[in-house]
């Protein structure tokens, strides 16, 4: 009589040993998480959390380590309230990522980098980052010991919240660097007599594809700029846009609790509320800069927000 020997140190066992990984035992692979996962919906339709968990259970180590979900999961935890087993799936994915890094794999994502010649070592980036990716270290730079930030590219998910918080322009990410953002806001003013609205839209807040497509349908006076997270928005960028002739700035982020990068939307709320307070103190209140937090159930809300801003910014008809 032959017995199949039970592998005592299977890949799944290794995952179970990492805090968070133990949830693996209670997953019955219903796939409810898949319906909530924004990565599956917006970035990698071929991959999803359930598939990753199955790969772990089946011992398909390499497939799990190279699965985009492993690296892209931002811990937004939209899947958590939906899971009938109350599994923190992001923690399981985190355990897989931990093992992947130990095994020598590294993040395939576009992450931030630090120009040590510019970095002053203030540490604002580390305080801003949802994932504590930047860390302050002391190292020799140009012959003297200096305190600078160093980014763990395996922790960084590229949201850009640190880029907008950096005061010396030392920390940057291709696509959303200061110079690229400044270039993107310098748009030709539309001459169709309509107000110029600049809309910054976070890559994750619009769940319905119809809402995403709608953004393309607006005429030239509605300038849409896609950003990875509303946390990337910088009050100086909003002011620069207004100075360059833009009539209003609308920033769209996720609803708190649903923010893809956990805290970007809260940081943005703070920034834009304070900015508006200052505009008010300078007698320029009036809602020319607005931040809206769009929930996963707010289908069609983006249209209302854009149309509302356009109406607010339109020249009022003269009263006779």
């Amino acid at each position: 009589m032959s017995h199949t020997k039970v592998k005592t140190n299977s890949f799944a066992d290794q995952v179970r040993l990492i805090p968070g990984g133990e949830h693996l035992d209670v997953c019955f692979a219903c796939g409810t998480c898949v319906s909530k996962c924004m990565i599956q919906q917006k970035a990698e339709p071929e991959y999803n959390p359930r598939r990753l968990i199955r790969q772990v259970m089946m011992g398909r180590e390499e497939a799990a380590f190279t699965n985009p979900t492993t690296w892209m999961c931002s811990g937004c935890d939209l899947c958590f309230p939906a899971c009938p087993q109350e599994i923190h799936i992001s923690e399981v994915i985190g355990a897989v990522k931990h093992l992947a890094i130990e095994a020598g794999y590294s993040s395939p994502l576009e992450t931030v980098s630090v120009d040590e010649g510019l970095c002053a070592g203030c540490g604002i980036c580390g305080m801003a980052c949802p994932y504590e990716a930047p860390e302050l270290i002391i190292k020799e730079i140009n012959g003297s010991m200096d305190r600078v930030a160093e980014v763990d590219s395996n922790k960084c998910l590229g949201c850009g919240t640190c880029v907008s918080a950096c005061l010396t322009g030392a920390i940057s990410r291709p696509g959303v660097s200061n110079s690229e953002m400044k270039e993107r806001i310098l748009v030709a003013e539309a001459d169709n007599g309509q107000p110029n609205l600049m809309t910054f839209v976070c890559d994750w807040c619009l769940r319905a594809s119809a809402d995403v497509e709608l953004l393309e349908s607006y005429p030239e006076n509605v300038h849409v700029i896609h950003i990875p997270c509303s946390g990337r928005i910088d009050p100086e960028i909003a002011l620069l846009a207004l100075r360059s002739g833009i009539d209003g700035v609308l920033i769209c982020g996720c609803q708190p609790g649903e923010c893809h990068y956990q805290r970007g939307t809260l940081v943005s709320a703070c920034k834009i509320t304070l900015l508006n307070l200052m505009l008010g103190r300078m007698d320029m209140a009036g809602g020319r800069v607005r931040f809206v937090q769009i929930g996963t159930r707010d289908r069609g809300r983006i249209k209302k927000e854009i149309d509302g801003m356009l109406e607010l910014l339109s020249p009022q008809p003269e009263v006779h």
Binding site: A128, C166, L167, G169, D234, V267, L274
Partner: peptide
């Protein structure tokens, strides 16, 4: 590289809450 010291500082302080 900073054009508006106040706005830039506001952004940094908001990011550390």
């Amino acid at each position: 590289g900073v054009e508006d010291q106040g706005a830039k500082m506001l952004g940094a302080i908001a990011a550390v809450i």
